[in-house]
Amino acid sequence: MRLEFFRLFPISLFVVAFGAAFGLAATQKGLPPLDAILMSTTVFAGASQFAAIEMWGNEVSVLPLVAVVFAINSRHLLMGASLYPMLKDVSPGRRYSLLLLLTDANWAVSAQDYQNGKRNLEVILGGGLVLWLAWIVGTWLGVYFGGLLQNPKSLGLDMVLGCFLLAMALGGKKSPRVLVAWTVAGLASLAAWRWLPPNTHVVVGALAGGAVGFFWLEKQDAEASDESAEAEDGAVP
């Protein structure tokens, strides 16, 4: 678990920068410093926190807030479900404690390891802890020293998570079936992003890609083990 903590340490440094950007945005919208830090501590879901801050004012409408937070975070539903084959073997208490720390980066590593035949729930715990701490520390920095990082975009920092998730996807097992699923997922997410309500594209795309897997079963192939050996040394150190 300690190993996994340090495995996600590099990406956590970038999470600190995101957290700082959130802390700054929150205080600019009039959220008191301690409340911004509290929100990062208990909600721990960056994109939805930014969206909530956008809706902030003297008063906040509850239903739109709930709808937006749920829509943006609904990918957690699918991410959690994808971990179920591993989580079903641990006690419910431990299972739901691990899920408290479920977020994009540690899930992506765990899911990639699982595709390559390795069970890795330690990264959910260890990686989740380092990401959570980074998010809180970052928010704290942004709240009190926000001026330090005026424009994280000019440094490309907004692309860290996107590049990380892309690297995880491409490091996983690739078969014709997976490539077809990715094409379907990509097209469906684009269509949803264009024509469906905001923030539904991740779930729509992922379910469309999953449908390919549902109807197209893969034979237990020998080449999968070659691929995993190759991908092993490509894992984030």
């Binding site: 991410m79 997922a185 999953g210």
Partner: peptide, 8 residues
């Protein structure tokens, strides 16, 4: 299949 499609 859904898992890697989430990323895409």
């Amino acid at each position: 299949t859904m898992a890697s499609s989430v990323l895409i």
